[in-house]
């Protein structure tokens, strides 16, 4: 007698879950899918290209910065406005001026190239972004209620 009472109580306890599960559609055939998501990866060629673009951008950026500073220092040495320097313009100063302009040109080209490579790298990074691989697996839920000696046995099972 007590076991019947316990079995009845268990069944009563499962009924709300069962109703809730039916509301969610857990037990309908093929009503739920397992989704497997796997992040994609770039090919080695793509990686090499990206590394080359960003590496080249870094390298030309460093070179450009070096020459930019060199040009700035030389220009600062020569630049004069307002007060007279008290110096005569000489072949050495003219050579220094040309060095400043040369360094400036190298800096301009290098930094321009660095910017271009960075831009190209960014575009390539976006264009070659791999798609994620998504897999689906149906799964089913079953509720089993089996009479047993002295009561019932209830269980919930999934298959996929």
């Amino acid at each position: 007698m007590p076991r019947h009472v316990i079995a009845f109580a268990l069944l009563c306890g499962l009924l709300p879950n069962l109703a809730q599960a039916q509301d969610r559609g857990y037990f309908s055939e093929g009503d739920k899918q397992l989704v497997f998501k796997e992040e994609g990866s770039r090919s080695s060629t793509q990686r090499i290209v990206l590394a080359s673009l960003f590496g080249g951008a870094l390298l030309t950026g460093v070179i450009g910065s070096y020459y930019l500073l060199d040009s700035r220092d030389l220009s600062d040495e020569l630049s004069a406005s307002g007060a007279h320097t008290g110096k005569a313009w000489s072949a050495e100063l003219e050579a220094k001026r040309k060095d400043a302009l040369r360094s400036g040109r190298i800096a301009t080209v290098s930094l321009g190239l660095s910017g271009t490579l960075t831009l190209a790298g960014a575009i390539a990074y976006i264009v070659t972004a791999p798609d994620d691989e998504v897999g689906y697996q149906d799964w089913q839920t079953r509720l089993m209620v089996v009479p047993s000696a002295g009561g019932i046995m209830a269980s919930k099972g999934w298959s996929f």
Partner: peptide, 19 residues
């Protein structure tokens, strides 16, 4: 901007003539 930053700015009457 880079070119402007790298160019010596020499105004009038700031250097004596060289040879």
């Amino acid at each position: 901007v880079i070119i402007a930053a790298c160019k010596p700015k020499i105004t009038t009457d700031t250097y004596y003539c060289g040879p």
